[in-house]
Structure formats: structure tokens, C-alpha cells
């Protein structure tokens, strides 16, 4: 296995007094796609939201444990979660380009929100949109509103917006669950392309999707990590009985 980019050690998370994650240990390999699967409410989303400390923005939510990014604990009290999120980008379930901004402004939104500007804005916009496989479709109308695009294009715009910040890790929380099959195929193709440059963690409900895009797959159940192994092993010959039951559709 490749040297891990992130190491999760003894991660616990709560919503108020109810526990959402119990003692998760998981290594996330560099420049690979790690898929997180499991039934609804098993803690998949909570887990990825702990990786950029977005979990704690929910009122009454908190997390404990260690998450090492390049050897440094992001839960160290000295770490500024706001700064951390620039290095760990995130794409959400529902496409959410900013409605008041054009396509171009959406791509640059991360910098605008930091109060800085890129030296070569047009270059950055083109590069990010190309990386998100959206450039050819929108190059003629960068000043149109971001929300005038189709759902799949909007999601790729959100990916471009995250990539413009040049993150180390890209988290994707069910990025295709609101998209039709054709838009999904495009995003999956894009993920395989992005894998060369970025470390990607993707939460998915769709087991075929995990098999198509992920190098390794982690199966979560009731807030615990049941099994994490190469995707072919998880879907072909899992060690745990519960994993086998879930991937074969016997429950969940």
C-alpha cells in the first residue's frame, strides 16, 4: 500500500450526547481514492466532515481523537480549522454554487472569501474548470450565473471551486446522489482523472460507484469502521461477515 496521506487514530464524534463515530482508525493513502460505504446513519458523512473539521460547525457537535495530515494532528488546539479547510477541500451532496455569483466568480470564490486575489485570475479559472472537465462546456459564457448550469455541471463547478484552492485532499460527500446517470458518469470519470494529483475520499451510497472509482473501500456500520481494504477485496472476498452481507445486498 502507498504511504498514507492522512492517518485517523481513535476518532470519536458526537451530536449532542448521541455518539456518531466510535474509535475510528483509518489510513487514507496518498493520491488514491478511498470510498466510504455503509447504510444511512452509519456515520459516513460525519467521518468525512471530521477530516476538514466541518463536523464541529453543526451546533452541539464535537469530535475527539487524532487526524494526522502529513504527520500533523489537525485536532491540535493550535490548528486553526478555518485555515485547515483551505488544504482539505470539500464537495457536498447537493450542488451548491453561490447563486449571486457568475461561473467565473464561483471558481474564484475561495480566494474572494479569503480576501485575496490570484495573480492570473483567468488562468486559474481556466485551469480549474479544465481540471473539473467543465471548461469546454462553459468557456463561452463565464459571466453567466453559476446556477444557470445543469445539475451535473453545477456539481463540476463546485469541484472546480474546490480545486481552485489547490487543496491537498479532496473530500466528496455523496457527490453524485443528486445527479442523473449521465452526469454521474462524467463526475466519476473526473474522479479517476483527479486521482493522479489529489488524495480523494468519497462517501457513496452506490456500491457500483465505489467499485468503479475507489482503490480502497471502507465499510462503516453503526458508527464503527467494520473493514477497510482494497476495493476488490471488499466486494470480492471481505473478511467480515457484516461486510459480505452488506455488499451482497442482504441488509442495508
Amino acid at each position: 500500500m502507498v504511504e498514507p496521506r492522512m492517518k485517523v487514530q481513535g476518532l470519536k464524534a458526537w451530536f449532542g450526547s448521541s455518539i456518531a463515530l466510535r474509535d475510528i482508525d483509518l489510513d487514507i493513502a496518498d493520491k488514491q481514492v478511498t470510498a466510504i460505504i455503509g447504510p444511512s446513519g452509519c456515520g459516513k458523512s460525519t467521518f468525512v466532515r471530521c477530516l476538514n473539521r466541518m463536523h464541529e460547525v453543526t451546533p452541539n457537535a464535537r469530535a475527539e481523537g487524532k487526524v494526522l495530515l502529513d504527520g500533523k494532528d489537525i485536532y491540535d488546539p493550535a490548528v486553526n480549522p478555518v485555515a485547515l479547510r483551505r488544504y482539505v477541500g470539500m464537495v457536498f451532496q447537493k450542488p451548491n454554487p453561490f447563486p449571486t455569483m457568475s461561473i467565473r466568480e464561483n471558481v474564484l470564490a475561495g480566494l474572494t472569501l479569503l480576501g485575496t486575489r490570484a495573480k492570473d485570475e483567468s488562468g486559474l479559472v481556466e485551469r480549474s474548470l479544465r481540471q473539473a472537465a467543465l471548461w469546454e462546456e462553459v468557456r463561452g459564457g463565464l459571466d453567466r450565473p453559476g446556477v444557470s448550469l445543469s445539475g451535473g455541471q453545477q456539481q463540476r463547478l463546485c469541484i472546480a471551486r474546490a480545486l481552485a484552492m489547490e487543496p491537498e485532499v479532496l473530500l466528496m460527500d455523496e457527490p453524485c446522489s443528486a445527479l442523473d446517470p449521465i452526469a454521474t458518469a462524467k463526475v466519476e470519470e473526473l474522479i479517476l482523472e483527479l486521482r493522479r494529483r489529489y488524495t480523494i475520499v468519497i462517501v457513496t451510497h452506490n456500491m457500483q460507484q465505489a467499485q468503479r472509482v475507489a482503490d480502497t473501500t471502507a465499510f462503516f456500520y453503526m458508527g464503527s469502521l467494520v473493514e477497510h481494504a482494497a476495493t476488490t477485496k471488499i466486494f470480492g472476498n471481505p473478511t467480515e461477515r457484516r461486510t459480505a452481507d452488506y455488499v451482497s445486498g442482504r441488509f442495508g
Partner: peptide, 24 residues
Amino acid sequence: MYREAAWALGAEKWTGIRRVVLPM
């Protein structure tokens, strides 16, 4: 989700409100 999108890009809370929430 728009507030979260702003925070996930590394925006301070106030910047997100001023640049994203208030214009909306």
C-alpha cells in the same frame, strides 16, 4: 448549505456571511 460551502472553502464566519449570505 451555502454557509457550509463558504466555510468549507476556508472562509471565516463573517466573510461567509458578508460575501455569500447577505447578497443572497
